[in-house]
């Protein structure tokens, strides 16, 4: 039986001192839903685990300075139930609802999901579209803030230094007129890994009926989720119409063609993404027609 050690910091200060002793075989534990599997699958019997779940300062959702601050230890169930997130980050809530099963959502955390950096991670696509920034700390107690894209390397790897930990996710509080939606395609309705996912954030001027701002993020098409400017441009400054939906779909098909041409999944995904496009588009614009609210 190997040697495994657990460290259970109760606050940031203790966490920082744990980080000072980080070695090769140090594993950060948040909800555990991925780490338990990883240690068993890779037959890892020695090392140190820093259990972040006891760090109280990492468990909150609050709004300050026009930023929704989400502690890294917040679970997906907590995200779903949070009123700020329901109001201001619909796509994040929708993504959280589609993560794993009820049991998984009760344990898995947003910080853990980002650190794991799976190409199909639902929350990453949503956070990317929302322009989230990641706040963290290192072994010197230095707090850092980076773009989400700088933290996620992709293909289940992150770009964090060994002594760095994500402590908070910052989502800019989007002003009036902003709306968002998330969609996903798996092989079952629920408890399924995304074959494709998409989050779209728009600012819609209800008086002119024009899309004034737009961000489109796509997941499971590359080692990590990415923002598609070409698809965004198609929607920008346009008015919702059947023609716009067609253009949106075509732009997405092109994006898929560029991303995965030649792969076995390509013929399917280039069609399926148009279904996803319809879902997200209808969600965004139907909600508006009936005057908002979900």
């Amino acid at each position: 039986m190997g040697n495994f050690h657990i460290k259970t910091p109760n606050n940031i200060e203790e966490l920082v001192s744990c980080l000072k002793e980080v070695e090769d075989k140090t594993y950060l534990l948040s909800g555990g839903t991925d780490l338990v599997i990883k240690l068993r699958k890779n037959k890892i019997y020695t090392g140190t685990m820093i259990d972040l779940s006891g760090v109280k300062e990492m468990k909150y959702i609050k709004v300050e300075n026009d930023i929704i601050q989400i502690g890294a230890n917040i679970t997906f169930s907590e995200i779903i139930e949070n009123k700020y997130i329901s109001q201001h980050c619909t796509c994040l809530k929708e993504a959280a609802q589609r993560v794993g099963s009820t049991q998984i959502r009760n344990m898995a955390t947003i910080g853990g999901n980002i650190s794991n950096a799976a190409p199909c991670a639902d929350s990453i696509t949503a956070l990317m579209a929302l322009g989230a920034k990641i706040k963290g700390i290192n072994s010197n107690g230095e707090v850092w803030v980076r773009e989400l894209d700088e933290v996620v390397l992709g293909a289940e790897k992150n770009k964090l230094a060994p002594d760095e930990v994500i402590t908070e996710i910052n989502v800019p509080l989007l002003g009036g007129g902003y709306k968002s939606s998330f969609g996903k395609i798996g092989s079952r309705t629920a408890v399924t890994i995304a074959k494709l996912n998409m989050a779209v954030v728009i600012k819609y001027n209800e008086i002119d009926g024009v899309i004034e701002d737009v961000t489109v993020a796509l997941g499971a098409l590359a080692p990590k989720a990415f923002i598609s400017n070409t698809v965004g441009k198609v929607l920008l400054s346009e008015k919702p119409s059947n023609e716009l939906l067609v253009n949106f779909k075509n732009a997405l098909i092109q994006e898929v063609d560029i991303a995965i041409k030649g792969r076995a999944s390509h013929p399917y995904k280039r069609i399926a993404i148009t279904g996803l496009a319809e879902d997200v588009y209808n969600c965004l614009f139907k909600v508006m027609e009936i005057g908002g609210g979900n």
Binding site: I185, S187, S265, P267, Y268, I271, A272
Partner: peptide, 11 residues
């Protein structure tokens, strides 16, 4: 009959 086969058949 996976989604992939359905899309292929429709294509």
């Amino acid at each position: 009959v996976t989604p992939e086969k359905i899309v292929e058949a429709l294509n």
